[in-house]
């Protein structure tokens, strides 16, 4: 399988103190990675280093063998905070189409609009395209930025807490959609549901990186639409009892 992302001995600091230390990881094409860890652990920073928005203090990131800034067209990104610049009089469709901009492309083509309608249908925001972005709820705005990340058909998708402000139902829908995308995915999330939606590996980031390989949680009877830490512990207890009996 092809190597999509490789991170070699990466260190990063904004000012004096290392935010990330000695990060080593390789991610294969098509892998689905969940990024977890405490607040301030460096998850968002790691995504920005992979995107090439930040430069490592030491070490390197390669995307399909090349530095990130050469591979920008392959990357789709959704930032952590979605409630910025609300004073800008921008329409939803204008925001989504930004995902198709290029350095020497100044006008949107019919293909761009076709992609706009397809992706907004997938994300169920096709009725909002002519609304002002500031009139949307946080959850809907999150979908709009997800659409912006997806509209250029990226090979690698990096999402920073994509479901932080959406309700439970929308969360499941988004994770179900992600599951169907056959591309490389790195998703930052505190949400335990994500772990059940086809994630291949879990990266725990807290200055350093701990990789949890081959996640194998089998849920005997998940209640429809609900699974949280309590169920997880119940599952663990049950499997422990199974083993001891």
């Amino acid at each position: 399988m092809r190597l999509a992302i490789s991170i070699k001995n990466l260190f990063f600091k904004y000012r004096n103190e290392n935010v990330l230390e000695e990060i080593n990881a390789t991610i294969c094409e098509g892998e689905y990675i969940a990024l977890i860890g405490p607040n301030g652990g460096g998850k968002s920073t790691l995504l920005k280093l992979i995107l090439g928005l930040l430069t490592p203090t030491q070490g390197e990131v390669l995307i399909f063998g090349k530095p990130p800034f050469k591979q920008r067209k392959l990357l789709g990104y959704m930032p952590q905070y979605v409630n910025f610049k609300l004073e800008l009089p921008l329409l939803v469709k204008e925001v989504i189409l930004q995902g198709r901009l290029e350095r020497f492309k100044f006008r949107y083509t019919p293909n761009d609009f076709k992609a706009l309608y397809e992706i907004s249908q997938k994300l169920k925001i096709e009725n909002l395209l002519d609304k002002k972005i500031s009139t949307l709820s946080g959850g809907l705005r999150q979908r709009v930025l997800l659409a912006r990340a997806l509209i250029a058909n990226p090979k690698i998708l990096l999402l920073d807490e994509p479901t932080a402000s959406v309700d439970m139902k929308a969360q499941r829908e988004i994770y179900a959609l992600l599951k169907t995308l056959p591309i490389t995915k790195l998703v930052v999330s505190h949400d335990i549901n994500l772990l059940l939606e086809g994630v291949d590996r879990v990266f725990y980031v807290n200055k350093r990186l701990v990789i949890h390989e081959s996640l194998d949680i089998k849920i005997s009877s998940p209640r429809e639409g609900h699974f949280c830490q309590v169920e997880l512990f119940e599952e663990l207890k049950r499997s422990k009892n199974d083993r001891s009996s």
């Binding site: 920008r72 610049k85 800008l88 925001v95 930004q98 995902g99 901009l101 350095r103």
Partner: peptide, 9 residues
């Protein structure tokens, strides 16, 4: 709107 995203594009 989003300087980082524009850079990325």
């Amino acid at each position: 709107y989003d300087r980082e995203f524009a850079t990325l594009r």
